[in-house]
Design a protein around this nucleic acid. Structure first.
Lengths: 237, 237
DNA sequence: CATAGTCGTCCAGTATACTGGACTTGTGTC
DNA sequence: GACACAAGTCCAGTATACTGGACGACTATG
C-alpha cells in the first residue's frame, strides 16, 4: 500500500491499474484487489477513461485534517505565498519525513528551475540546506542511523562527505539561516531558515531557491526576509 | 484502518492510542500494531504528549495531490472564499462520497449554526439540498441501492419519505438551484447549485446555509450569486 | 505504602488477505 | 475477421497480519 501511494504521488496524475502492477512489480491480481479495497474506502478513486486510479476524496479530507492541526504548516503556507509574491522568487516549506526532506508547500517564482520541487516530492537530507537544519538537534550517531549511505550521492554522481555533512548539521544548530550551493544542481543555491515549534525543536524550514549568480544585494534582501519570517512564525517558548 | 481514519477525522484532533482501541472496540494489541505500521509509513504521526496519534505528513501530501488533479475543487475553494467574504454567509463545497454527501471545503459566515459543517464531515443524502442534486442523474433503482433506509431518518427523528425524495432528485436534474428547509434542523435552509464536470455530470455542489427567517431580498441575492458562480465554474461541454 | 485500574508489550494460534497461475474478456493490427 | 497481446477476473494454497490473553510498568487513590 505504501509503495502504491508513493508511486501515485511521484506521478501526480491518474495511473492505470495494469501499469501500477507493472511498476510495483507485484502480481496483477494483488493490485486489482488492493485498489478495489482502497477505492471502496475512498482513499483512491477511479477517474476518467481507461481504468485509471488516483488519490480519492477521503485522502484530501484526511490531509485537510492534518493541515488544520498543524499551525506551522498553515501559517507557513501564507508566508510562502507572501514571500513569493513580494520577491518573485521560489519559496518552499519543508519538513522531515522519515529520512527524507519533504516539500509540503511551494510557490514558484517566475524562473522555476529546481528539479522536482512539487508538493510531496522528497529529497535525501544531504542534498539540501533544509536537511542540515532539520538534523541539527541530532548527534552523529542518530544521523548515521537515519541517513543511508546512498543519500550522500548527489544527482550528478558526486558524493557528500558524511563527516563534513554532520559538522554542517551541528553548525546549523541555532543558526538563523543556512545556505548551500550547487548540491542538487550547479546553477542554484538554497537558503533555508528554521521554523521552531513550542518545544524549541525545528519542525519545518522556510526555503528559497535562487540562481547561483544572483547579485549580492538581492541575496541579502532575501536572506533578511527569510530570517524575519522564520523568527515571526517560530513559537516562543 | 478505514474505521481508524474515520474516527480521527470525526475527532479532528490527536487521539490516544488506548482510546482508539476502546472507541473502535478492537483488541488493543491490534490497534497498537496498526498504528505503529501506519506511522512508520507516515500516514499517521505521534504528536504531543501521552502517546497521541493523528494524521501524518504523507496524508497531507497525498491529499494535496488529489487537490492538484481536481480543478473543480481548486476553483470551488476560491469561489467559496469569495462568496463568504462578499455576502458574510456560510458556504460549502460538497461532493458525493460513497452514499454520503461530504463537505470538502467550507468558509463560515459570522453566524455558523449548522451541525458539524467541518471539512470532512459527511451527511446522509436525504438530509441536504446538495444530496438531491448529487443524485439527480440516477434512476429510482440506483438511488434505492445507494441510500440506506436509516439515511431517511433526520436528526430530529422524523423520516423523509423515500418516494418524495426520489421525485425531488428527479426534479433537481437540470435545476440551477435546489432549496431545502428545516431538514437538518428547524432554523436553517440550504441553497445548493450544481458544479458540472466536462462530462455534464454533477461533480460537486456549491451550497449556502441561511437562517430560515432571512428576508426575501437577501435570499434572492444569495441565490443569484450561487447560480452565477456555479455556471461559471461548470465545464462547458 | 498497598491496591486497583489502565497502559503498553509480547506471543502463539488463527483468520484474513496476498500470491501466482489459469482463464475470460477486451483492444489494436494487418 | 482472424490473430496476438494486454487487461481484467477467479480460485486454491500459502504467508502475513490480526486476535486475545498473559504479563510487567506505570499512575492515581485512599
Amino acid at each position: 500500500m505504501a509503495k502504491l501511494f508513493a508511486y501515485l504521488n511521484n506521478h501526480n496524475q491518474p495511473v492505470r491499474v495494469a501499469d501500477l502492477a507493472k511498476a510495483l512489480s507485484a502480481p496483477r491480481s494483488s493490485i486489482y484487489e488492493l485498489v478495489s479495497v482502497l477505492s471502496k474506502e475512498g482513499l483512491l478513486e477511479f477517474c476518467g477513461e481507461g481504468n485509471k486510479v488516483f488519490f480519492g476524496k477521503l485522502m484530501y479530507v484526511y490531509g485537510a485534517n492534518f493541515l488544520s492541526q498543524n499551525s506551522i504548516l498553515r501559517e507557513g503556507q501564507l508566508e510562502v505565498d507572501r514571500l513569493a509574491l513580494e520577491t518573485h522568487e521560489t519559496f518552499e516549506l519543508c519538513t522531515l519525513n522519515q529520512n527524507r526532506q519533504a516539500i509540503l508547500y511551494t510557490r514558484l517564482g517566475p524562473r522555476p528551475m529546481r528539479i522536482g520541487s512539487e508538493i510531496g516530492s522528497q529529497f535525501p537530507l544531504p542534498w539540501t540546506a533544509s536537511g542540515r537544519l532539520l538534523l541539527s538537534h541530532m548527534d552523529e550517531e542518530a544521523i548515521d542511523s537515519l541517513v543511508l549511505p546512498e543519500d550522500y550521492i548527489l544527482p550528478n554522481g558526486s558524493v557528500v562527505d558524511s563527516g563534513k555533512f554532520k559538522n554542517e548539521c551541528r553548525d546549523a544548530l541555532g543558526a538563523e539561516i543556512v545556505v548551500t550551493q550547487g548540491l542538487i544542481n550547479t546553477f542554484t543555491q538554497c537558503l533555508a531558515a528554521p521554523l521552531k515549534g513550542s518545544s524549541g525543536l525545528i519542525e519545518a524550514t522556510l526555503c528559497c531557491v535562487l540562481p547561483i549568480d544572483v547579485d549580492g544585494d538581492h541575496k541579502s534582501f532575501i536572506s533578511a526576509a527569510l530570517k524575519e519570517s522564520a523568527s515571526r512564525l517560530s513559537r516562543r517558548t
